[in-house]
Design a protein around this nucleic acid. Structure first.
Lengths: 227, 227
DNA sequence: CGTTAAACTATAACGCGTTCTACTAAACTA
DNA sequence: TAGTTTAGTAGAACGCGTTATAGTTTAACG
């Protein structure tokens, strides 16, 4: 002890031997692996693709995989960003095509649910891939850029409410809206044995519920009064 | 060929050799295994309990386990009924304690969400145990007795709407309500990194949304007119 | 009793995610 | 070029869910 190389601690460390992977190369490698993974997961499902197989298809050794990713789920996590981008790009386009605020809210909400229903493979990829634990999802979902994209809903709600909107009001309404839409998707996909009402009807009930004029008064009992 | 025992096909088959397991014994054995599984899963988590371990704790061979259950998830499925019973027993009690219809609806909705939030282990057990596929959940959820218990919500919605309620109206509203509550639970549990509004606020937004007076008119565009 | 058909056991095996260890290849400095 | 540090490889290993196989016990029959 005391014999190690960091005796000269007055610099970023003298470069001896092969340099460590540059962040750029790491990013490139992760992107390469993720791209292979996306194709494989889409075609054959997350559970069916083994790490050994993914490594082989990526032209890499299984061990190397674990140099770039903590585990299989972390690979999955990098794909979520792509899928969610896809959803929200579509929602933004839908929103741009509707000038009436209430109609816009409804269009976006419908688009969200219908995207998942039309691409169940992606839904499974994001929300239902096996063995997910609380920590896995929430750590990924705290990515600020991703969460920010859910603001479409918030701004649509704000626009539809118009003048009468207050901050906390909008927040609760739009979060409840997102939860409702997620719940609709979850129900229709995972409990397909039950004969649900039409998705559009459920979505519309949820969006009009989010704009219910009654809500603001009732919320007064829960959040600090604002004036 | 032709030498087999079913030459005498004029009966339910002659009993030769050890009789097959009686349905009662099968049920009993499954119950025994399930009971062991419930304790183990609750204490150490679904993923942490191996089939070898469960077999051992049940006083049984791993192979025998597979004689009574198709796979590990089927064991899990038998526990869902117990957990859901627990939820709905509580909801029924809550409903009985509230005479005002709107308050009752809210109490039941809150109770539902709060149960899952307070017993996340059970939530994982039911909704998030790894590797679940569409078929797994929906086949279980088509159990009529279980689905019937969700009618608490329907009847609460009907009572709160009072005279002005119509069949399809109630149906869509209560299904959207259930979806919304499921979505709230899903969001709060799996995306705990995000700072959601208070659960009670989200629930109240959802219940008042489900009673929104606007809804009935808008639904007219989607479902056949009723008069 | 012996026969028969089933229940159950014991054990090995497969591929999985993951980890470990020993090794080779590469990229830099002195 | 020699020395050093890291990247990547090769391959065994662990426990997992699950399956297959062969053997043993059990409960009914005649």
């Amino acid at each position: 002890m005391g014999r190690t190389a960091d005796a000269n601690a007055d610099g970023p460390r003298v470069a001896r031997g092969r340099p460590a992977r540059t962040p750029a190369h790491v990013a490139e490698m992760r992107a390469h692996i993720s791209s292979c993974a996306l194709n494989l997961f889409r075609d054959e499902g997350f559970a069916s693709i083994s790490m050994r197989r993914l490594a082989h298809e990526s032209g890499i050794t299984p061990m190397t995989l674990y140099k770039y990713f903590e585990n299989k789920f972390e690979i999955l996590g990098t794909l979520w960003a792509d899928v969610l981008s896809e959803v929200f790009d579509r929602l933004d386009a839908l929103a741009a095509n509707e000038s009436d605020p209430a109609a816009r809210l409804n269009a976006v909400a419908e688009g969200y649910v219908e995207f998942w229903l039309a691409h169940r493979d992606r839904y499974y990829l994001v929300f239902m891939s096996g063995g997910i634990t609380q920590a896995d999802v929430s750590s990924f979902m705290s990515d600020a850029a991703l969460i920010g994209r859910f603001d479409v809903f918030r701004s649509c709600v704000a626009a539809a409410l118009g003048e009468r909107a207050e901050q906390e009001d909008i927040r609760v309404r739009s979060e409840a809206l997102v939860c409702g839409l997620n719940g609709i998707t979850l129900g229709l996909i995972t409990m397909s044995g039950y004969s649900w009402a039409a998705p559009k009807a459920l979505v519309q009930a949820t969006t009009t519920g989010a704009l219910s004029p009654q809500l603001r008064r009732e919320l007064g009992a829960l959040v600090p009064a604002q004036g």
